[in-house]
Design a protein around this nucleic acid. Sequence first.
DNA 1: CTTTGGAGTTGATCTGAATCAAAGCAAGAC
DNA 2: GTCTTGCTTTGATTCAGATCAACTCCAAAG
Lengths: 247, 247
Amino acid sequence: MLHQKLSNHISCGDCAIRHRAVCARCDDDELAQLEAVKFYRSYPAGAAVVWSGEQMDFVASVVSGIAALTQTMEDGRRQMVGLLLPSDFVGRPGRNQAAYDVTATTELVMCCFRKKPFEQLIVKLPHIAHRLLEMTLDELDAAREWMLLLGRKTAREKIASFLCILARREAALHMKSVGSTILIELPLTREELADYLGLTLETVSRQISALRREGVLNLVGKRGISVPDFDALQDIAGDDVDGAILS
Amino acid sequence: MLHQKLSNHISCGDCAIRHRAVCARCDDDELAQLEAVKFYRSYPAGAAVVWSGEQMDFVASVVSGIAALTQTMEDGRRQMVGLLLPSDFVGRPGRNQAAYDVTATTELVMCCFRKKPFEQLIVKLPHIAHRLLEMTLDELDAAREWMLLLGRKTAREKIASFLCILARREAALHMKSVGSTILIELPLTREELADYLGLTLETVSRQISALRREGVLNLVGKRGISVPDFDALQDIAGDDVDGAILS
DNA sequence: CTTTGGAGTTGATCTGAATCAAAGCAAGAC
DNA sequence: GTCTTGCTTTGATTCAGATCAACTCCAAAG
């Protein structure tokens, strides 16, 4: 990695961007500058953050909760093009209009920076630009992985792939190995899932049911899914596992 | 834009990256440093530049010709995830292995930089990182546009969308308005087109034939396509035209 | 010239996912 | 309690695009 491994050596605790996106190398003075243009916003589940084409005078980092980027065609067909998890970045420096609909799919807290001063800071503090580049490249890789899913995978594989991603994340968060049973909390409704995977909500429901019948997963309420055998799921996902890149 | 509008104030003429990707703000000394780690490579149409997972000790910029990024599943299903046009950037600073198969779809010339020294230059010359960020964000937007195409558009719309992109590019290159008849030279075979659009080559062929029968386009040889009425094509593509973002 | 082979087209058939339609199920409102 | 209401599941049917299979075209090789 260009950047030293992310660390929490700056104690602040409440704002992901200070930890991850921006500040791993900030000194106190620089931090103070960021601090000056920072503010928080929170949204209830389902709320819109901005609509595509609207003025957007801030950039932001997700602190907690999950936000979705979606594109919509005139006739109503929708495609989710990004899922923003804590520490992910929203908004494009140098652009004034939102390029996508941004909505909160769960309760959401974002740490925002007014755009003008943030852009000035990018120029003044080169390591912020580096970190942004690093993050953008990661998003680009994720988007390309998703293109393979959208273009070539079957409904069954799409569902399995998505659950695999959530499961890996879950395992990483709790520092557990992916061996034992993993409990996933779906952050999306069936319809949102369909919009993410390029399917209809009926197909999503059917495929989840099919996997349940086969014992690959168990439903825990409506949003919970437990995966007893992660390898089986990964197998169904059809992912090119050796494609894991070591940075 | 973060960066001042791209200009050719540095006269070199033979290398896109010096014009566009990197050097719009370089002074002579900085240019010399870039020059020292630069070399050219050319590939015939169809040649592989690198395979996914291989060691890749350089980054590069396309000078002329077109390269494709593709992902492949174990069973052979392929999805193209990027089309690199002149001045586009290949390779990720900080990563040693290629993440995708990179192949030349036409005769291709690339301007390469050895990776280690290039990475040092990124740190030393902040505006290079800015320009890379700018380019990566553009690619991310393009990828997300493509996700909508792959997930939600019909075969007919996919073909029309792709031709629209080529036509717009063609019109921009020749500084012509998109009003009159545009002649497009397809840089891909039907099979590559299918891999790009998430279709089979038969469907691609059928849809092109259908558009020809309807008079939306004319075939000129095998690779040439003329579009008498660009608006009609754009209409079929179903693009959200008002989504055009002003930077 | 003929042969060969790669690229493209076209046709017949099949199938996975969409569409249309009807229940089921839980949580909150009243 | 029972009535909404939003989300989800399930079933029947349809259809766009995949698959399988010929066939055409053209350029390069012999």
